[in-house]
């Protein structure tokens, strides 16, 4: 440990070795799999909504990776079947997430298909779930004296309704909801081997 270059070279080589196993090999396996027939690319509006989702940091509270029934009751909670790598073929950046301060959202479009529900919930989550700790997003909405033609108004309980005016969704809110409604991976599973099946021996199938 008295020589400069060997220390640096060996350190770099160890990292390169790890990179082959953690990044290159799984990448090759995932990227060569074909895209499931049931998975549609995002539309332009959905992509705009996705950018909104990314920029507001939704991923810090909402995961998008339902677990297998052997591991947890995600399916029973309506979060969808266990996802596989090929379900994310159009996701850039990926939004798998690491927290469930809120529920998993990979199939929220199938579970909560109502635009009105999402708009109300984004404007004030506590109008729907009084104990929710999700932030409200008033800046995605306009408060107007009355709605113009083409405006999407937000249904609100009386105590949340600003007096004498209506709440109208801005385009950011509509895009975001369009993205949420597009989250629907309920088509049949493709490439079931492209996920962590390490829990399979833990219990019977359901």
């Amino acid at each position: 440990m008295n020589r400069f270059a060997p220390l640096l070279l060996l350190s770099a080589a160890i990292l390169a070795f790890a990179t082959v196993f953690l990044v290159i090999l799984p990448g090759a396996e995932i990227r060569t799999a074909d895209i499931p027939a049931g998975l549609q690319p995002y539309t332009e509006q959905e992509l705009r909504g996705r950018t909104e989702y990314v920029s507001l940091g939704c991923v810090y509270c909402h995961s998008q990776q339902p677990r297998a029934p052997e591991q947890g009751p995600d399916g029973a909670r309506g979060w969808g079947r266990p996802s596989t790598a090929s379900d994310y073929a159009y996701d850039r950046p990926h939004l798998l997430g690491t927290m469930r301060t809120g529920p998993a959202l990979l199939n929220i479009g199938a579970r909560m298909p109502s635009q009105a529900w999402h708009l109300t919930h984004l404007y004030q989550p506590r109008a729907i779930n009084p104990t929710s700790i999700m932030p409200n997003y008033p800046f995605l909405f306009d408060v107007k004296a009355q709605a113009n033609a083409g405006d999407v108004t937000v249904d609100l309980p009386p105590e949340e309704q600003p007096a004498g005016s209506v709440v109208v969704a801005r385009s950011e809110a509509l895009d975001l909801v369009a993205y949420l409604l597009s989250l629907d991976r309920t088509y049949p599973v493709a490439h079931p081997e492209l996920r962590d099946n390490g829990y399979a021996d833990k219990g019977a199938t359901q």
Partner: peptide, 15 residues
């Protein structure tokens, strides 16, 4: 690794 193929098969069965 031995359990993994079973897990993949289970997913297809469930679907």
């Amino acid at each position: 690794l031995a359990a993994a193929p079973q897990g993949a098969a289970d997913q297809v069965t469930r679907t």
